[in-house]
């Protein structure tokens, strides 16, 4: 029982990660895939921030009269990861835009069909 109390946070975060992963692999729509990747990424951030938490501590901004602070290291790593994440998401979206211009669709199976038809023709 104490296992469950100490670890339920990780389990919920893993559930969130898996919903993101499910979206990425189950859908054929490129924008929904990007949304799924974003959810997956936000959940990984949560996993790290969860690990940085210390019981009875306060935010890592020093004030008089507090001795324990949360771990600043996961915060630092995730902070930069968020901004890099949005920049790389933008690259994925830009690729989606170009794919839409080239094929007229952002559905994976339709793109595959067109490629296949081209192969047969040429």
């Amino acid at each position: 029982m104490s296992e469950a109390l100490g670890l339920y946070n990780y389990w919920i975060v893993i559930f969130l990660m898996m919903t993101g992963l499910y979206l990425v692999i189950s859908t054929g729509n490129l924008v929904r895939k990007v949304v799924g990747l974003n959810i997956f990424q936000a959940s990984v951030l949560l996993l790290y921030v969860t690990m940085g938490r210390v019981d009875g501590a306060t935010a890592p901004i020093f004030v008089e009269g507090r001795e324990t602070y949360t771990d600043p290291l996961p915060s630092v790593l995730m902070l930069t990861a968020i901004v890099v994440g949005v920049a790389t998401t933008a690259v994925a979206l830009a690729l989606t835009v170009r794919i839409n211009e080239a094929y007229g669709t952002i559905e994976e199976d339709e793109i595959n069909e067109q490629e296949h038809a081209q192969e047969l023709a040429g």
Partner: peptide
């Protein structure tokens, strides 16, 4: 939730970016 976990800097970034 990050704010509840005492990580205001990340929470701030996530709110602005995400």
């Amino acid at each position: 939730w990050m704010l509840i976990l005492d990580a205001p800097d990340v929470a701030f970034t996530e709110a602005a970016v995400g």
